[in-house]
Amino acid sequence: MLSRVADSLYWMSRYMERADGILRMLKINYAWSQDDIQEFSWKPVLRIFTSLNPEEINGFSLNTRDVLQYMVTGKENSNSVLNIVTLARENARSVQDHITKEMWQCLNDFYHTMRDDNLAVALQKDDPITVLDILIRQGLIYVGTTDVTMARGEGNSFLNIGKFLERAIQSSDILNVKISGLGADDNHADAAYWKYLLLSISGYELYLKTYRGGFEIKNVVEQVVLSDQFPRSVIYSVNHLHRHFERLKTDHSNEGFDNLNFTIGKLKSRIKFSTSSSIIHEGLKKYLTEIRFCLVETGMSLNKNYFA
């Protein structure tokens, strides 16, 4: 496969995963903003999903509709859903002959939906949840179409590598921003805080079933970092990243493959042999920063060995 094609597939997939993450986060945070006017702030969302610095965030209008406009259809925001979907589609366009026609059509539809003027109006005037649901569903159609139609070859591996790398980075970022501000044993944040955090990564119901005694930071860390049941946990993402990466192994030995395989393997064991207590003991912030560093390193190594 052409290096450029692998690169485009990988980025297309990362962008789609990011769009999904942003949309879910916005949907839940919007609901929260209607629920609890005291506790709620849009700042963490802007911190996780934009390139604004703290100063700019402080100066940003935290009016709900303004934030939604900026995050969804904002042309000036390089990480707005509109721009991300456009980038995903541009990547798809340049590899149209390597994805199925259905996948292309579905990204194309998503793009045209994003560009529809009525969307921006509805986001300002109507129920934002309805709008966000339409967009989330577009993303899900892409995921399903990819799963059903895409051949299980090298291209599929790069799609999944992109998807799970992006997801692992997202989950560790969300946890980092939302929790690491709290003290190590700080279980004082109210139930709504935890509920909305878990809802925003679609992990609330699983938490309720797993931990029956209310919210504890230790348990939240366990689910979001270490649970191999939870599809958005860091370990789940890294395991899948590794599984799809291993499929790239070919007959002739490739030094790049061995190096990367080692990097990912090391990261996997680092997480696997942690417990929620050990993580909190060594400091959540430090731990997550180290994980994030390894994930970014993996991305750079892919760049060097496969996409250059």
């Binding site: 496969m1 052409l2 290096s3 450029r4 149209q96 002959d97 070919t250 002739h252």
Partner: peptide
Amino acid sequence: ELVQGSDLVVDNHKVYMKTTN
């Protein structure tokens, strides 16, 4: 294969495409 100029390189008077392999 659909290629762009940057996907190709000429070495020893032969044209190659840059692949993941």
